[in-house]
Nucleic acid binder design. Structure first.
Lengths: 120, 120
DNA sequence: TAAACAGATGAATAAGTGTTCATATGTTTA
DNA sequence: TAAACATATGAACACTTATTCATCTGTTTA
């Protein structure tokens, strides 16, 4: 049985490496915004919606059909994507057309796909 | 009160747009792997760990210190990062050093940061 | 070899998230 | 203006996920 705390002691810390790394860490606000953005992309339904929208704009009803999910579910997810400024929308008659509001999304998808494909 | 189902009728579907978009959607396996990758990046603790590791390798104890969390929590998160092939590790004496196993991570971070900064 | 230590891991709990159902909003058209 | 329609939204529920605690594994060193 251990006689001391199980927490890391100071003797295991590599001070120089640690100092360098510490400089590289963004402030908490940035970290939160960054992880929130990835969180939004980290859902299959939303990835599917975005994949569809990368080609051209679509209305909620189209999206509902294309991803095989109820209108409400799609609408809820579009709300999340809207909040992250990833998609924008315009009204045309009764329909509301959604489209990608940011070319970064395309780039993120491409790089992520590269990562996936490199693994055996 | 409506006399019919509330589900989208076929008349609201934009057939041509839909057909084009459908081609652009990857198969389900790819969609799952893609969203899983983003899901791994969609957590502040893991983003913090990766930010630190982008500079140089660090042991679990260093990471625990740098992100201000217990050793167990860090270890659990490293497990997730390992599973996604995002980090690798090597043993050196009693310490285990973790480092980034994929330059795509750096690119993903940079693009995501661009997206964030463009918004007012 | 026994103690000390770095790290991993299972179980438990608390917090977060996605889908569905029911209903509300706002536009169009008869 | 009333019905029909496209979309939005609140509440509820099931499911997932992150952290903590306790314990275990494996390496080093005295």
């Amino acid at each position: 049985m251990p006689t001391k705390e199980l927490l890391c002691e100071e003797n295991c810390i590599h001070t120089e490496l640690l100092a360098k790394s510490k400089q590289n860490i963004p402030d908490d606000d940035t970290l939160i915004t960054l992880s929130d953005l990835f969180k939004v992309l980290g859902d299959m339904t939303r990835v599917k919606i975005l994949s569809a929208l990368l080609k051209n704009e679509l209305c909620v009803c189209d999206l509902s059909e294309i991803i095989g999910m109820g209108q409400s579910a799609v609408s809820h997810q579009l709300r999340v994507l809207r909040a992250s400024k990833i998609v924008k929308f315009r009204r045309d008659g009764k329909s509301i057309f959604y489209s990608i509001d940011d070319d970064h999304v395309r780039q993120l998808f491409e790089i992520a796909l590269s990562h996936i494909r490199e693994e055996s």
